[in-house]
Amino acid sequence: MNKTWNNKAWWMVVPVVLLVAFSAIIPLMTVVNYAFQDTFGNNEFYWVGIEWFEDLMESDRFFDALQRNILFSCIILAIEVPLGIMIALSLPKSGWKVNVYLVLMALPLLIPWNVVGTIWQVFSRTDIGLLGNTLVSLGFDYNYTRDVLDAWITIVAMDVWHWTSLVVLLSYSGLVAIPEAYFQAARIDGASKWATFRYIQLPKMRGVLTIAILLRFMDSFKIYTEPMVLTGGGPGNSTTFMSIDLVKMAIGQFDLGPAAAMSLVYFMIILLICYAFFTVVTNMDKAETKTGGAS
């Protein structure tokens, strides 16, 4: 049967194209223009060529922030993914308790980023904060505003508190979708809990876990508000991630040219990650379609 082609439907995309042009493409074009120029205000710009990119590629400040971003993303993934799976495995599969647990799990996800930062800033203070004051009372030399390790532990703990629920919810959705027949077969074979997890549950959760890992990686890689509110990038520059450094450069120092160059490089890195995310997810869908959803 011949398929009827009607390309008139493309006109329905026009409003979105216009919206994206105003909200993303035109600002991006401006950033590209700024990246090759210098300004002292008053809307006057001077061509500097690739000077800002040369500075950026030799800048320890940029590469240090990039390393902090990568380190932070790796740490939170190493904690949130296994923890999320463990919590999802321990949740009940049915009954009224399921709803209660799922709502409780979803609560941290509903709190705005700046509120999370403020909660943890107060929570971790050594004078009035429940966590900070308790740790100091127990004899720990804890001060997240002074000690680099304490600041990192606090930021990681905050992110784990905020986002592990996402991994839990995704893992749980993958777990409850596994047909009971698989578990019956495992029981008949006398499979241990570990073997059931390793050969049934984990492979069946592969799709949702991939999405969880990529979502968390992308989100943690562009983290800004929470550490900005909690530590302001300190002590020193120890928790200054790329996004924080970018805002400091653009708004704090009014170095629009270098900030534009940095944001373009940052954008390219994010684009690369997004493309990897898109490719993995679409190829996974195609593979599942080919195998008829079985794995």
């Binding site: 074009m29 401006t30 590209v32 223009n33 700024y34 090759f36 120029q37 809307n43 710009f45 061509w47």
Partner: peptide, 15 residues
């Protein structure tokens, strides 16, 4: 569009 600080090389790039 002066706020966009257009220059010829960048315009060529986008074209």
């Amino acid at each position: 569009l002066s706020w966009m600080a257009w220059t010829t090389p960048v315009a060529i790039f986008f074209v």
